[in-house]
């Protein structure tokens, strides 16, 4: 006995297939986007080389977040024991890594 109504699994399996293929497509798409950005990236690397840059300009609010890798040696709460971070971005970067 075969009913004329389509089985509900057909559209769902189709949807699943679509989802999986789109997911795979994102991998291909990321390659495409990377290719498109390759020229910019090369130019940026050249800039990094020319100016001898050491850090990303993600945060500009304080020395130790603008040049993460060039900061002085620092300790937590260095200003005084109750001092909280001055800058919100300070809480987003990593605490100093201590040996256990």
């Amino acid at each position: 006995m075969r009913s004329s109504k389509p089985r509900p699994s057909t559209p769902w399996l189709f949807f699943l297939l679509l989802g999986i293929s789109f997911t795979l497509l994102t991998f291909a798409d990321s390659l495409r986007l990377r290719d498109a950005m390759q020229a910019d990236l090369t130019a940026n690397r050249q800039l990094v080389r020319d100016l001898a840059l050491t850090d990303l300009a993600l945060f500009t609010d304080a020395r130790y977040v603008r040049h993460l890798s060039q900061q002085d040696n620092y300790a937590a709460f260095q200003d005084h024991p109750m001092a909280l971070e001055h800058f919100p971005s300070g809480s987003l970067i990593m605490p100093p890594q201590l040996s256990p």
């Binding site: 994102t26 986007l33 950005m37 990236l41 300009a57 993600l58 500009t60 800058f87 919100p88 971005s89």
Partner: peptide, 22 residues
Amino acid sequence: LKGWATLYPDFRLYPVIDALQL
């Protein structure tokens, strides 16, 4: 994620995805 700085850099992200993230 970019921070609270006055100067927001505006940049295109370099998409890298892999099986580990998924």
